[in-house]
Design a protein around this nucleic acid. Structure first.
Lengths: 219, 219
DNA sequence: AAAAATATTTAGATTTGTCTAAAAATATTT
DNA sequence: AAATATTTTTAGACAAATCTAAATATTTTT
């Protein structure tokens, strides 16, 4: 099934919008995609004919299972490219979205899987959003990046941003594991480093780069 | 100046075709881009209006200096992405062209420059074609990849595929420098490794990966 | 230098994705 | 439940990039 960039953008937008409501309205979609409702209706008909949507006129729309599969592929690509931009090319995590919006439309399946492998099969992107694997399986728990925790919040490490040997070496040295409980004490503006209190251990310092690679759930 | 993907493909095709003749005919372009001559004429008018082409009806076309500048940006992106795919993602150098045809249209200037840096500012792509730098300067000498040399050809090393520290370490160990003269003795099908005779030194073995990173001129 | 062959351009149609304006359906208010 | 407001769809138009068929230029052959 080959989709144009526009078609892919509709599929992706419906995927994200239906997370909340289960079903998506024409106006919602028009606002999200920055088009007019009339254009949306046209596209909904087209994608329905391709069996990617479940659509009843006036009743809103949601993805078919085939549509959902494609959406997950697009989301996977988006989040892997964001990870690449931040981890390998040293982009700031707040400046990668637009570029990833372009890169997510590159079609090669082989490219995506090799990129995934190159990045160490990360489970979460730099924003803490889960990356679907090549079968479309995505970890459901929404985790938050350690960098985004407010001071004096208690949290538990539940995932790391990648599997790179360098990261793992550092975590071992700092004795941080999945399940480690901690509390952010200070955030330093200058270098975005953190001082954290590790449960059962003392206070340690975490660099911006390390914090970016750690995902926690608030407890 | 924002160009559509189609427009970029025309600019790039004209760039490559005019290398040979200096000027490009409508039919040449149609054949190259897999369109009909009538479509080419339309696009030539459009790009001429944008001052990217020098075009006289019935007399063929060539790039304006502005057009050439854009062409070099596209070629730069294409060749950097090919280098990325081969050096970082372990693609074979014969399977990267199509993917790079897509990636070359990603517009972010910052992305290209960061990618260039990440790859160690390579001067040649995996096929031995020169990569323009961010100012559009390109090394003119067409060099050939060591892998593509026929046995018993004498050659002189004139460039390396990248500046990665790992590559440089290996070259140092093998005492291979820019200017080193050598002759290919054997090519081994099994692992694509080479046995070469280095002038003034003995016979040494070169792995496929290393040969791929060496560009020579035949002497 | 005509005639024939080839190359190029023009004219008009098609597809994709968008738009505006008007009509129809649904939802909300009175 | 009627009137009003909102949402959604339909109808018709437009720009980009392509196509086919026909007309026009240019080049080659005789």
């Amino acid at each position: 099934m080959h989709l144009s960039i526009s078609e892919e953008n509709y599929i992706k937008a419906i995927f994200h919008l239906q997370e909340a409501d289960g079903t998506v309205s024409t106006n919602q979609l028009a606002a999200n995609i920055h088009t007019k409702p009339a254009s949306v209706t046209d596209m909904l008909k087209k994608l329905t004919a391709k069996r990617l949507l479940l659509y009843k006129p006036y009743q809103g729309v949601r993805l078919s299972s085939e549509g959902r599969k494609l959406a997950l592929e697009i989301v996977r690509k988006h989040r892997l490219w964001e990870s690449f931009l931040v981890d390998k090319l040293q982009f700031g995590w707040d400046e990668v979205h637009e570029v990833a919006e372009e890169l997510e439309h590159i079609s090669s399946k082989k490219l995506v899987d090799k990129l995934d492998q190159f990045l160490g099969n990360p489970k979460f992107d730099p924003h803490g959003d889960p990356i679907p694997d090549s079968n479309g399986v995505m970890h459901a728990i929404r985790q938050v990046n350690l960098l985004d925790l407010k001071p004096h919040t208690k949290a538990e490490v539940c995932s790391v941003g990648s599997q790179s040997p360098e990261l793992l070496e550092l975590l071992k040295h700092k004795q941080i594991l999945i399940g480690t409980r901690l509390e952010v004490q200070h955030k330093f503006e200058f270098d975005h480093s953190l001082e954290i209190q590790v449960e059962g251990k003392g206070k340690i310092n975490i660099s911006q780069q390390l914090a970016q690679a750690l995902f926690v759930k608030i407890i």
